[in-house]
Design a protein around this nucleic acid. Structure first.
Lengths: 183, 183
DNA sequence: TAAAAAATAGACTGACCTGTCTAATTATAT
DNA sequence: ATATAATTAGACAGGTCAGTCTATTTTTTA
């Protein structure tokens, strides 16, 4: 069921959960910010965790689309996309809205691998890998699968380190790594 | 003030916070498991967050010492330490007690960079980098600083991906990356 | 053995949590 | 305009949260 209120709830939820954490953010805080009644939430979602799961699915699509568009806009070739993605990350790291990788945080707060939230987080990484594999294949590098796997590690590592330490330069270090790998 | 009860509290706290999360783990649960009275906790620590901070400092020392010992035991040369550390990580990933990097999780749940818990997490990454820089320097690689930086990204990335997706093979992918970098 | 320190159980506070219920109101259809 | 659906405010329940207080008991020290 598509719905305007539903979309607003997911948008506000994603924002607050991302910035302040899932357990640390209460339903009432979220509803206040969204200006929506509690029963409306429970008419659209079965529980807080349901809202989180559905929100992560939406966020994953948005993130991958945002990356795809950024690469289309700024990379000068298929091969250049392999490097440009780290520039996009660096720009993200330096922005106000950067609070690390939301999916890594979700998996951390819901450690049970069978939990829907944990699964949603895991699914995003699979989507990210797919995207990178596509790019690496089109770029005709030696071993596209291997490079895509390595880039997932570097992107996630850079996000984690940048958020924990504030070292936004992590993105450039990751980029340099990929350059060395391809050379 | 060193104290047996204090050590037990930190040990139990680290275990539960690591496995189940910081906000998700209540003080009472922790005290039940440790078999220690609540007032004893508040005689040794000013608050739950204080317990978390002090616990992370202890954990950081333990982790770095554990890595150091593992490398002494299994690496055949200084240079081999650069690879063996990923074998240690892989073994860790496959163990029952693996729930990702505790420090990344702490930074995630306490996003304010000025919060003592976030700082404690950040400090650990600095310690990890120091250790890697030392090894890279002794191994006489081309650019020790650069390699140590890259290894931090790879180790954190591998931890995050392994925990989120269950792909313990991430450790080997990270190892392969370092091999390619040094070659 | 006596004095001092540490740890105990457990009640208690006030706040916050998720989720439910009701009854009135608003918006959307036909 | 009328019927249907969606949304609303707000009270409410039952639980959990971190942290405090007291009075008692245990442990350590001298």
């Amino acid at each position: 069921m598509p719905s305007k209120k539903r979309d607003q709830l997911i948008a506000t939820a994603n924002e607050l959960f991302y910035q302040n954490g899932f357990h640390a953010t209460g339903i009432d805080t979220l509803l206040d910010k969204a200006g929506i009644a509690k029963m409306t939430l429970y008419n659209h979602f079965t529980s807080k965790e349901d809202l989180i799961s559905k929100g992560l699915a939406v966020k994953s699509k948005k993130v991958l689309a945002w990356l795809h568009q950024g690469l289309e806009d700024h990379a000068v070739s298929e091969r250049d996309k392999l490097f440009t993605i780290f520039d996009i990350y660096e720009h993200w790291f330096k922005s106000d809205g950067f609070y690390g990788c939301m999916f890594a945080k979700a998996a951390a707060e819901f450690p049970d691998p069978n939990h829907p939230v944990h699964k949603a987080a895991s699914k995003h990484l699979a989507g990210l890998f797919e995207m990178l594999l596509n790019i690496a294949t089109n770029a005709k590098v030696n071993n596209p699968t291997s490079l895509a796997e390595q880039m997932v590690l570097l992107l996630e590592g850079a996000s984690s380190v940048a958020f924990s330490t504030g070292a936004t330069i992590s993105a450039r270090r990751a980029k340099r790594t990929v350059i060395q790998l391809i050379r």
